[in-house]
């Protein structure tokens, strides 16, 4: 089945099987391996990307469902050589250990901050309910998002 998707500002057209998930499409067809697949059943959030600006778990969206949509992945967050303020904050505040969950954390953080530019710690923790960090490094992830929000506001 033919699909056309704009990913990180670049248009792509492919003929794919309907049963291919968007996460698989991004990783295997477009070689955008920054989107990670953890549980593959919408529990862990490591495959989170933005579809038309909304954070979604790309393992639970078929690529054919995203036909005609605009997708942003972790690779699309940086502006040229400069990191996105959320990425910068994760680096600065040690918001990662093994790094597997990080792309999903950053993409969810983007929606948390977009919906609420000045989130409290509790609001950030509530917003991260769909993202697991098995290093259990949540404390610094929350701190990173708080700092990123402050950076973006200023």
């Amino acid at each position: 089945m033919k699909i056309s998707i704009k990913v990180n500002g670049v248009s792509h057209s492919h003929d794919i099987e309907p049963r291919i998930s968007l996460a698989q499409y991004l990783r295997e067809e477009l070689q955008l391996t920054g989107t990670h697949i953890g549980c593959d059943t919408s529990g862990c959030g490591s495959c989170t990307i933005l579809i038309d600006g909304d954070a979604v778990k790309s393992c639970t969206v078929l690529a054919v469902q995203a036909d005609g949509c605009e997708v942003t992945t972790i690779e699309g967050m940086a502006n040229g050589s400069g990191m996105h303020p959320i990425q910068e904050a994760f680096k600065e505040h040690h918001g990662l250990q093994c790094g597997f969950c990080t792309p999903g954390m950053v993409m969810t953080a983007a929606e948390i901050i977009k919906a609420n530019p000045n989130p409290t710690e509790a609001e950030i923790r509530d917003g991260l309910k769909g993202n697991f960090c098995r290093c259990t490094g949540y404390h610094n992830i929350v701190k990173s998002i708080q700092h990123a929000a402050e950076q973006i506001q200023s």
Binding site: A55, V56, T60, K129, G130
Partner: peptide
Amino acid sequence: IGDIQIRNR
């Protein structure tokens, strides 16, 4: 329900 990502879909 669920989390942000699930509520979006």
